[in-house]
């Protein structure tokens, strides 16, 4: 499925004149769904992703009796791309949700211990639901930004008689870190960030790296059907660490 944009990328140029390591313009809007406890729409160029956070009550997992639960789910809604079909989440949606989940969970950016009401009996469940609205490439990075923005917007609802009182809030969800996921793509011998949908046609391997504020790496996921050398991996991780610093500034106010 090669095209003009992807062929241009092979020669090291981009159709919108960006540098290879340059992201498209990012726009973050929080608090746009009033029924959700937290929400955010992130536009990354023409890629649009909406993330909503709902808070519920549940019984904790037996092995973590005093921790709240985090559940991340992604829907590739058929409205976002002619390639998406309705039905249960497919392989790519599942992978996206799990990679975002891993970044949030392993970075410990939400203090799940603070979400326990009664040990072994009742904890808060944080549901992050990711909806792709328009697919123009680089879904994982965009979905992660949307999820983080939505979590930072989340308020914990009031609980009365073991029930959630909707519309009344206690406090903000404690978000301790601002991890960032950056997907570094390899095209020939070049490393590229934030590919558009058309550019993704020639990308054979990618590495998603989750970097926390203190530069700890919290998640890695290699994707694509081609292999990487050890040197590639090390370079890609360095690129991701650098880029994460720049992207994190979006959340500083």
């Amino acid at each position: 499925m090669e095209n003009y944009a992807s062929n241009l990328l092979l020669s090291g140029k981009r159709i919108d004149n960006r540098k290879l390591d340059e992201f498209r313009e990012i726009e973050i809007k929080q608090g746009i769904i009033d029924k959700a406890e937290g929400s955010a729409m992130v536009k990354l160029g023409k890629t649009k992703i909406l993330a909503g956070v709902k808070i519920g009550l549940g019984t904790p997992f037996p092995d973590t009796p005093n921790e709240g639960m985090l559940i991340v789910n992604a829907e590739f809604t058929p409205l976002a791309s002619p390639d998406f079909e309705s039905g249960p989440p497919g392989e790519d949606a599942t992978e996206l949700a799990r990679v975002v989940d891993r970044g949030i969970r392993e970075s410990k950016c939400i203090d799940l211990k603070k979400l326990c009401k009664t040990p072994r009996e009742m904890v808060l469940c944080v549901f992050v639901d990711i909806h792709i609205i328009n697919h123009d490439g680089n879904l994982i990075d965009c979905a992660f930004l949307a999820s983080l923005a939505a979590l930072m917007d989340t308020k914990i609802p009031k609980i009365k008689d073991d029930r959630i009182v909707r519309g009344k809030f206690e406090k903000d969800l404690p978000v301790l870190y601002k991890p960032i996921e950056v997907t570094v793509c390899k095209v020939d011998d070049k490393f590229v960030l934030d590919p558009m949908f058309k550019e993704e046609a020639v990308i054979e391997s990618k590495l998603t790296v989750c970097v926390r504020d203190d530069e700890k790496i919290c998640a890695l996921q290699k994707q694509g059907s081609k292999e990487l050398t050890m040197d590639d991996i090390k370079k890609m991780i360095e690129i991701a660490i650098d880029k994460s610093k720049e992207l994190r500034k979006l959340f500083e106010r």
Partner: peptide
């Protein structure tokens, strides 16, 4: 794939510094 040292699977979760991560990759190899 050991003969040419081409990595085909890499997944990680947890918290590692860059140095620890590079060291673990060499150990894995």
């Amino acid at each position: 794939m050991p003969s040419k040292e081409k990595v085909t699977l890499l997944q990680m979760d947890g918290r590692l510094t860059k140095e620890e991560l590079f060291e673990s990759l060499d150990l894995a190899k």
